[in-house]
Design a protein around this nucleic acid. Sequence first.
DNA 1: TAAAAGATCGAACGTTCGTGCTATTATTTT
DNA 2: AAAATAATAGCACGAACGTTCGATCTTTTA
Lengths: 198, 198
Amino acid sequence: MAKGQQTRETILQTATQIASKDGLEGVSIGKLAEQLGMSKSGIFAHFGSKEDLQTATLDLAWEIMAGHLSTANTAPGLERLRAMLNGWLLYLEHSPFQGGCVFMAASTEFDGRPGKVQDHLLKLVQQAVGILFEQLNTAQQLGHLHGDIPVPQMAFELHAFLQAANNAYQLSKDPQYFEYARDAIERNLKMWQTSEVL
Amino acid sequence: MAKGQQTRETILQTATQIASKDGLEGVSIGKLAEQLGMSKSGIFAHFGSKEDLQTATLDLAWEIMAGHLSTANTAPGLERLRAMLNGWLLYLEHSPFQGGCVFMAASTEFDGRPGKVQDHLLKLVQQAVGILFEQLNTAQQLGHLHGDIPVPQMAFELHAFLQAANNAYQLSKDPQYFEYARDAIERNLKMWQTSEVL
DNA sequence: TAAAAGATCGAACGTTCGTGCTATTATTTT
DNA sequence: AAAATAATAGCACGAACGTTCGATCTTTTA
């Protein structure tokens, strides 16, 4: 690998940590330079603009996160859905980012700032939720979930538990919230199987 | 009312709007000065530090929010609980703040920044969740909810739906998410009444 | 109405921000 | 090893940040 490419990745690794702790706007050229023992212009040359630095940071964060939602060696349907949700929870609880999920933080940070970064962020967030939709659809088609359940509704509820656990944990550092989330998710899955709820 | 006090409140009104749209850190003295046709030092003199400006902004935001959770003229128990949740949802959907709930935004913004502002924020957030706890406890004592339900678990789930609706709506501007939340909340309440879930 | 108190302004401070240039090194290619 | 290319440093810029201070203007009190 070319030298520059390697440096670029090192920069982005540091950037994801800063984004997790201080927000995506807190990823400043100066802070990166100091933290990496480089000059501001040396950092800057790799990206050309702060916006591009931010979107590149999101891309790396996405790769890292996606690696934790792996569903290898699981049967499609309910089992794979459970594996993914469990991976997601573990990713949030023992996060590779020191300040919690970059996407949940960036979502609230950028929901009022249209532009290139928001567009990129929205694409990645929808991609994450899309994976959840896929698993739910498959589980439904295989008969593991009741045939009449509205998948978007169920996705909303499961995603809500994940978000809430992440937020409450980051604010309080109390891991108990992940147990609440696990409980809520498991009960939710059971509910949508038998389902006289409809 | 003294002239200064009146100006101070005008400043804070503007500050809550900025906090909602750009975050609590986005509440800058210069922006306030420009937006209000005052000088920076004129603004600054009312608070003495940015931290105090931020905590005062949170205080006003709390007053505004608390006014929307009113449970007047409702019977204690399940009815009052429903009224409060409904008020909360309406507050999030037709928000007095242009950029969504100040507290949900500030929570993720400040979860990694210890200090005076975080302490103050935590106190107010716990106060909000505390109200939810109260209503749940009362409803349980009155027999409107099953006697064995773990109140913290239920509070987590209800709060999760509120948070998720706010976040998704702010990111997408699609009010559909509030319907998801209403649905989820109503089903949740029913579930904890009959409750073979335990 | 005069005096005291309060509110606001204007200018300046030291930092940090993103960004643009021009050198000067390192690295890769020939 | 020489030439071409890539990577980094150094310096400067304008703007925005929070903050301080002394002067001025406005309001309240006596």
